[in-house]
Amino acid sequence: VRQEELAAARAALHDLMTGKRVATVQKDGRRVEFTATSVSDLKKYIAELEVQTGM
């Protein structure tokens, strides 16, 4: 499950970095929206997932 969450989070980051205004991911069973202003929060979430998956 964590691998899927990590892939979704990375895709969301890619979307935001390429101009999409809002990206949505499932985080702990709930839907979370990230915007360009919350990229740093999304990067932290990705880092947490990488630690949890041993990457």
Rank of each mutant, 00 (worst) to 15 (best):
residue 33 E to W: 04
residue 14 H to M: 09
residue 10 R to Y: 08
residue 44 K to C: 09
residue 34 F to N: 04
residue 54 G to H: 10
residue 30 R to P: 03
residue 40 S to E: 15
residue 33 E to N: 06
residue 52 Q to G: 10
residue 32 V to Y: 09
residue 32 V to L: 12
residue 3 Q to D: 11
residue 54 G to L: 05
residue 39 V to D: 02
residue 35 T to C: 09
residue 19 G to H: 04
residue 12 A to R: 02
residue 21 R to D: 14
residue 4 E to I: 11
residue 9 A to F: 04
residue 43 K to A: 08
residue 35 T to Y: 11
residue 46 I to F: 01
residue 53 T to Q: 12
residue 48 E to P: 00
residue 42 L to R: 00
residue 34 F to K: 03
residue 53 T to G: 11
residue 52 Q to V: 10
residue 24 T to Q: 08
residue 50 E to V: 09
residue 30 R to M: 15
residue 46 I to H: 00
residue 18 T to F: 07
residue 16 L to C: 02
residue 7 A to S: 10
residue 31 R to V: 15
residue 51 V to T: 13
residue 34 F to R: 03
residue 34 F to W: 05
residue 38 S to E: 15
residue 49 L to T: 01
residue 2 R to F: 13
residue 30 R to F: 11
residue 7 A to H: 09
residue 36 A to K: 11
residue 11 A to P: 00
residue 41 D to Y: 05
residue 4 E to H: 12
residue 3 Q to E: 12
residue 29 G to C: 04
residue 35 T to D: 15
residue 37 T to D: 15
residue 11 A to C: 09
residue 39 V to I: 15
residue 24 T to P: 05
residue 18 T to W: 07
residue 24 T to E: 12
residue 30 R to S: 10
residue 3 Q to S: 13
residue 46 I to A: 01
residue 50 E to D: 04
residue 15 D to L: 09
residue 19 G to C: 04
residue 10 R to F: 04
residue 24 T to K: 05
residue 51 V to N: 13
residue 33 E to Q: 08
residue 48 E to V: 08
residue 2 R to M: 12
residue 26 Q to T: 14
residue 18 T to R: 10
residue 25 V to C: 07
residue 49 L to S: 01
residue 52 Q to M: 14
residue 11 A to V: 08
residue 8 A to M: 13
residue 31 R to M: 15
residue 17 M to Y: 05
residue 31 R to Y: 15
residue 8 A to R: 10
residue 50 E to Y: 05
residue 17 M to R: 04
residue 41 D to V: 06
residue 9 A to L: 10
residue 6 L to P: 00
residue 51 V to Y: 14
residue 43 K to I: 14
residue 38 S to Q: 14
residue 41 D to A: 09
residue 38 S to N: 15
residue 17 M to T: 07
residue 7 A to W: 09
residue 54 G to Q: 09
residue 55 M to N: 14
residue 27 K to V: 15
residue 50 E to W: 04
residue 32 V to G: 03
residue 14 H to R: 10
residue 23 A to S: 06
residue 29 G to W: 00
residue 12 A to H: 01
residue 5 E to W: 06
residue 28 D to I: 01
residue 22 V to S: 13
residue 48 E to I: 09
residue 35 T to H: 08
residue 33 E to A: 05
residue 53 T to V: 15
residue 6 L to N: 01
residue 3 Q to K: 12
residue 31 R to C: 12
residue 28 D to T: 03
residue 21 R to F: 08
residue 30 R to K: 14
residue 20 K to P: 02
residue 21 R to Q: 15
residue 40 S to F: 03
residue 6 L to A: 03
residue 45 Y to A: 03
residue 12 A to G: 03
residue 8 A to W: 07
residue 39 V to R: 02
residue 19 G to I: 01
residue 22 V to Q: 07
residue 53 T to L: 15
residue 14 H to T: 08
residue 50 E to R: 04
residue 13 L to V: 02
residue 54 G to M: 05
residue 36 A to G: 09
residue 53 T to Y: 13
residue 25 V to R: 02
residue 4 E to A: 13
residue 54 G to P: 04
residue 8 A to S: 12
residue 30 R to H: 11
residue 31 R to E: 15
residue 54 G to V: 05
residue 37 T to M: 10
residue 16 L to N: 01
residue 18 T to A: 12
residue 4 E to P: 08
residue 42 L to Y: 00
residue 26 Q to H: 11
residue 41 D to E: 14
residue 28 D to Q: 06
residue 26 Q to N: 13
residue 2 R to H: 13
residue 31 R to P: 15
residue 41 D to N: 06
residue 11 A to Q: 14
residue 1 V to G: 14
residue 46 I to M: 02
residue 49 L to W: 03
residue 11 A to W: 02
residue 44 K to D: 12
residue 44 K to M: 10
residue 16 L to G: 00
residue 21 R to M: 14
residue 29 G to I: 02
residue 20 K to Q: 11
residue 3 Q to C: 13
residue 29 G to V: 02
residue 2 R to S: 10
residue 53 T to M: 15
residue 16 L to A: 02
residue 2 R to I: 13
residue 13 L to R: 00
residue 17 M to L: 13
residue 43 K to C: 10
residue 5 E to T: 08
residue 45 Y to F: 09
residue 52 Q to C: 09
residue 1 V to S: 14
residue 10 R to V: 09
residue 29 G to K: 03
residue 55 M to E: 13
residue 26 Q to S: 11
residue 21 R to S: 14
residue 33 E to L: 05
residue 16 L to Y: 02
residue 22 V to C: 10
residue 42 L to S: 00
residue 47 A to P: 00
residue 44 K to N: 11
residue 53 T to N: 14
residue 42 L to C: 02
residue 30 R to I: 14
residue 48 E to S: 08
residue 21 R to G: 12
residue 32 V to D: 04
residue 51 V to F: 14
residue 33 E to C: 09
residue 16 L to Q: 01
residue 42 L to G: 00
residue 25 V to H: 02
residue 51 V to K: 13
residue 37 T to Y: 05
residue 16 L to H: 01
residue 2 R to C: 11
residue 18 T to V: 08
residue 3 Q to I: 14
residue 38 S to Y: 02
residue 55 M to S: 14
residue 1 V to C: 12
residue 30 R to D: 08
residue 29 G to A: 04
residue 52 Q to D: 12
residue 36 A to Y: 11
residue 1 V to Y: 10
residue 5 E to R: 08
residue 40 S to M: 08
residue 9 A to M: 07
residue 40 S to I: 10
residue 54 G to N: 11
residue 35 T to E: 08
residue 32 V to T: 07
residue 44 K to L: 09
residue 38 S to G: 10
residue 44 K to F: 06
residue 48 E to F: 12
residue 54 G to K: 08
residue 13 L to E: 01
residue 30 R to C: 10
residue 20 K to S: 12
residue 29 G to D: 05
residue 48 E to H: 08
residue 50 E to P: 00
residue 31 R to F: 15
residue 47 A to T: 09
residue 10 R to N: 06
residue 50 E to K: 05
residue 23 A to T: 10
residue 22 V to G: 05
residue 29 G to Y: 01
residue 14 H to L: 11
residue 48 E to C: 10
residue 29 G to F: 02
residue 36 A to R: 09
residue 15 D to I: 05
residue 41 D to H: 06
residue 12 A to C: 03
residue 20 K to L: 08
residue 32 V to A: 05
residue 15 D to G: 05
residue 30 R to N: 11
residue 51 V to Q: 15
residue 45 Y to L: 13
residue 26 Q to E: 13
residue 50 E to S: 06
residue 55 M to F: 04
residue 5 E to C: 09
residue 52 Q to R: 08
residue 31 R to T: 15
residue 27 K to M: 14
residue 14 H to V: 11
residue 12 A to E: 02
residue 12 A to P: 00
residue 27 K to N: 05
residue 55 M to Y: 03
residue 38 S to H: 10
residue 45 Y to V: 05
residue 23 A to I: 09
residue 34 F to P: 03
residue 20 K to G: 10
residue 41 D to Q: 09
residue 28 D to S: 06
residue 42 L to H: 00
residue 6 L to Q: 01
residue 52 Q to S: 11
residue 28 D to W: 00
residue 46 I to V: 05
residue 31 R to W: 15
residue 44 K to Q: 11
residue 19 G to W: 00
residue 37 T to F: 06
residue 45 Y to M: 09
residue 55 M to P: 11
residue 47 A to D: 08
residue 38 S to R: 05
residue 29 G to H: 04
residue 44 K to T: 08
residue 12 A to I: 03
residue 7 A to E: 11
residue 28 D to F: 00
residue 55 M to H: 13
residue 49 L to I: 05
residue 23 A to Y: 00
residue 41 D to W: 05
residue 21 R to H: 13
residue 37 T to H: 11
residue 18 T to S: 13
residue 17 M to P: 01
residue 43 K to V: 14
residue 21 R to V: 13
residue 41 D to I: 07
residue 34 F to E: 03
residue 52 Q to T: 11
residue 23 A to Q: 03
residue 7 A to D: 13
residue 37 T to E: 15
residue 19 G to V: 02
residue 6 L to K: 02
residue 25 V to N: 02
residue 30 R to Y: 12
residue 34 F to G: 03
residue 6 L to W: 03
residue 16 L to K: 01
residue 48 E to G: 05
residue 43 K to G: 04
residue 48 E to T: 07
residue 29 G to E: 04
residue 40 S to W: 03
residue 36 A to C: 13
residue 8 A to D: 08
residue 47 A to F: 10
residue 51 V to L: 14
residue 25 V to A: 05
residue 4 E to D: 12
residue 54 G to C: 10
residue 40 S to H: 13
residue 37 T to N: 15
residue 49 L to N: 01
residue 36 A to Q: 14
residue 41 D to T: 06
residue 45 Y to K: 03
residue 14 H to N: 13
residue 14 H to Q: 11
residue 17 M to N: 07
residue 22 V to E: 07
residue 42 L to T: 00
residue 22 V to F: 07
residue 18 T to H: 14
residue 52 Q to Y: 08
residue 5 E to L: 12
residue 36 A to M: 13
residue 34 F to S: 03
residue 36 A to F: 10
residue 25 V to I: 14
residue 53 T to H: 11
residue 24 T to R: 06
residue 43 K to H: 08
residue 9 A to R: 00
residue 48 E to Y: 12
residue 41 D to M: 07
